[in-house]
Structure formats: C-alpha cells, structure tokens
Design a protein around this nucleic acid. Structure first.
Length: 153
DNA sequence: GCCAACGTTGGC
DNA sequence: GCCAACGTTGGC
C-alpha cells in the first residue's frame, strides 16, 4: 500500500464551502476547466488526502481536510447546457473533462491563512505561495503536507 | 509552429 | 479596481 498523496484543492466559499461539504459528506469535484488541474486530478488515487482551501475570501486559507473516494468520473456539468461549466466542444463518446469524488474528513478549528502559509513556506516549497499561481488543484509533497498539519492540528 | 491579443484567476 | 501570471485562441 502506497502512502496516500496529498493535494490542495481550492474553492470559493460563496460557491462551495467546507460547510457545504460537511452537510453533504461527499461531493463530486466538478467544474474544473483547466487542463493542468484536470491532469493533476487524473493522478489522484482513492485514499489520497486533500486540504480544502477557501479562495477569494478574507482571509483565504486552508479550512479542512478531505479524502478521495472515487476517481476517473465523467464531469456531468460539461453536457449541461444550463451549467456555467457547459462545454460545447466536449462529447459523450470522448468527454473532455472528468473529476473525482471527495469525502469530508474534518474542519480545522482554526483557518491556516495564506498569509501564515507564506510566512512559513518558501515559494520553492509550495506552489500555492508562488506569485500568480492560479491552479485550483495542487499536489502537495508529503513532507510539506506534514509540515502544514503541524500548524493545523 | 510562432506569437500577439485576449480571457481568467485570485491576491491585494 | 489593479495587476501579475499564465492559458487559450486564431491569424499567418
């Protein structure tokens, strides 16, 4: 059994927050329309862990933990004409976008803000703190994940 | 295949 | 609202 890989997954709390996930227990992480982020998601394995990051809010930061429960799922929103994620260039024979299913693990008592993360990590260590980073899904090396956890627990 | 224009993300 | 950093698009 390999050690689970860690990820950092961003969501705007106005759209989907850790509270929503807690209520649902499990969610399809759909709407990813960036190829790099999609490719990262394709590399996820069941049992992997992810930090839930609230973006575009004050302050942005890590608020909880999730676990990957299913992978290689077709993102249904690409075929939904009423969805903002509808993609006319995709087709059911060869779907362009897929997603994973994530399960709620916990919400941290205290948010670890981007500011704190920036103070504790260098840009080399963590993609998240690199200026201009816009990826909504980021792999987190295990050693970095462990360091993050020491500030969260 | 190059590259300029344009769009998006997201912190500030 | 600004802007940096990319990704995407489309003309050539």
């Amino acid at each position: 059994m390999n050690e689970p890989q860690w990820w950092l997954m961003k969501s705007e709390p106005d759209v989907y927050s850790i509270t929503h996930l807690k209520e649902e227990n499990e969610t399809l992480w759909d709407g990813i329309r960036n190829y790099q982020a999609r490719n990262f998601m394709r590399n996820m394995s069941v049992g992997d862990k992810a930090f839930f990051y609230h973006s575009n809010c004050k302050p942005p930061g890590i608020v909880g933990m999730m676990e990957v429960t299913k992978t290689n799922l077709v993102d249904p929103t690409q075929f939904d004409k009423d969805s903002k994620y509808f993609d006319p260039k995709s087709n059911k024979e060869k779907p362009r976008w897929d997603c994973a299913k994530l399960k709620y693990i916990c919400e941290y008592k205290r948010k670890l803000s981007l500011k704190e993360i920036s103070e504790k990590f260098s840009a080399d260590e963590l993609i998240l703190v690199r200026k201009g980073n816009r990826l909504s899904i980021i792999p987190v090396p295990n050693i970095i994940a462990k360091k993050l956890l020491t500030y969260l627990e």
